[in-house]
Amino acid sequence: MTTQQSLILHLNDEQQTVALGQHLAGLLVPPLVIYLTGELGAGKTTFSRGLIQGLGHKGNVKSPTYTLVEPYELAHVDVYHFDLYRLSSAEELEYMGIRDYFNDRSVCIVEWPERGIGCLPPADIQLHIKYVNTEREVVISACSDSGRMLLEKLQNDA
């Protein structure tokens, strides 16, 4: 069993949240499952935009609130951005073939993962984003060996 390691970062604004996603994109190696937690408006989709664009997507990154998943098929990685906020039942994920998204070539970003319990694979890394005064506090926790390697790279860059 692996122990969980964490890093706490303070971000001043939306640009720093995007920059964190872009920086993490340069460090990660697929396959990877990222859970994003935090209140509505905390910055989960903002972080996702930075990560997805950092992996090479040109153009807008929209929230998949109504579609549940937005795919981004890039040259070296398939990125699947899930937003489970409007999910009425975790069983809906089985009907959409959720397991097919999690493969050796994918980076899966899951907002509101607690709504998909029982149907989602465990996270490699989890980011919990919350407001503290006017800043965002991001707690990044490694939940697997690959998540721990990613967190160590991030800590070495800090």
Rank of each mutant, 00 (worst) to 15 (best):
H23T: 15
L68R: 02
V18H: 05
S6M: 11
D145G: 12
A123I: 13
I98C: 00
L7G: 01
G97R: 04
E94S: 15
H23V: 15
K44P: 09
Q5A: 10
P64Y: 00
E135R: 15
L7P: 07
I117R: 13
E137T: 08
G38S: 05
I129S: 02
V138F: 12
T45E: 09
Y131K: 09
I140P: 07
T17M: 15
T134W: 04
Q5G: 06
G21A: 01
V139K: 11
E73P: 06
S141R: 02
K130M: 15
L55Y: 05
L27Q: 09
I125C: 07
L32T: 00
V18T: 02
Y80V: 01
G118C: 05
N12Y: 09
N156S: 13
Y35L: 05
L150G: 07
M1D: 01
G43E: 10
L150K: 07
A25T: 01
L68D: 08
K153F: 05
E94V: 13
E152H: 02
S89A: 15
P121Q: 14
I98Q: 01
I8F: 09
Y85R: 06
K58L: 11
L24S: 04
P31E: 00
L84S: 07
T45A: 04
H128C: 15
P113L: 09
L20H: 09
Q155T: 12
D100S: 10
N103I: 10
C119W: 12
D13H: 11
L87W: 04
Q15P: 01
E114P: 09
P71W: 08
E152A: 14
F82A: 03
V132N: 11
T65E: 01
G54E: 06
T67K: 04
L74R: 04
G43S: 06
I52F: 03
I129M: 10
W112P: 14
Y80T: 08
V138P: 04
V79K: 00
T67I: 15
E14Y: 06
D100H: 08
D83G: 03
L7A: 01
P30V: 02
I117W: 13
G43A: 04
G116S: 11
S146C: 13
G50S: 10
R99M: 07
D78V: 10
A19K: 15
E70P: 03
M1Y: 12
G26R: 01
C108W: 02
T67L: 15
A123G: 11
N156W: 09
